[in-house]
Amino acid sequence: MRKRRILLLIPILLSSAIMLLPFAWMLSASLKTNVEVFKFPIEWIPKNPQWRNYVTIWSKIDFGRFYFNTIKLTVIITLLQLATCSLAAYAFAKIDFPERNALFVAYIATLIVPFQVIMIPQFILFRRLGLVNRHLALILLQAFSPFGVFLMRQFYLSVPNELVEAARIDGLSEFGIYRKIMLPLSKPALASLTIFTFVFVWNDFLGPLIYLHSGHLRTIQLGIRMFISQYTAEYALIMAASVCSLIPVVIVFLACQRYFVEGITLTGLKG
């Protein structure tokens, strides 16, 4: 038994190393000089760590502005999604009205249409509305996600109808039921949706690439892309910028790991 356990541990340890080494290399390179970055054999812990790199990147490009833009978009989109999706999901899960199924099918149908397929008509629409090159375009684009409605509805379905009925008999309004019963019960689903949205908006590249053209509007992902094209040979600085772009996601991931996994099982396997 012991022997078998060790045998199983070998592939897992090996693949863990493969998963982590690129990040370790990135961190280590971010603390080197450009000459040292590609030295071989790799010096994992730099003898002379260049902490200065982390100061330089903020002055070389408008990194602070990119950070602020990304945080702004992430917070606004996530809050709007939580509010509008949880409300709509309540109607789909707990209120009986004639067009319920037809409307829900429309939501589900668009879920299988990838963003890449509708990005052109969306862009044309936003250009007509005069919203291209404004943060509002991305906010409107991502705040009403059918995925969020789907996820919340799946969770609400697991709340017994008897509970809702009993509250109705007690004279609670529908909004009261939503606010006082459903929302408190659905904390895990809300947490999963928050994390999904946060990670998606933070990491999104194609959306900002299409909509945000002016330098002062750029998000962090666009900022990194700009950094690489402007300072091709500044290897260490590019790595430092990449590390900075990952930090918020690392923090959220470490703090809320279980919701990532719960979110996967909620939307996927039990369907």
Binding site: F23, W25, M26, I224, I228, M239, S242, V249, V250
Partner: peptide
């Protein structure tokens, strides 16, 4: 093992 999935494709592709 899950972390590379959460990390931004841009940062990871640069590395």
């Amino acid at each position: 093992h899950f972390f590379p999935h959460v990390a931004s494709t841009i940062a990871v592709a640069v590395v």
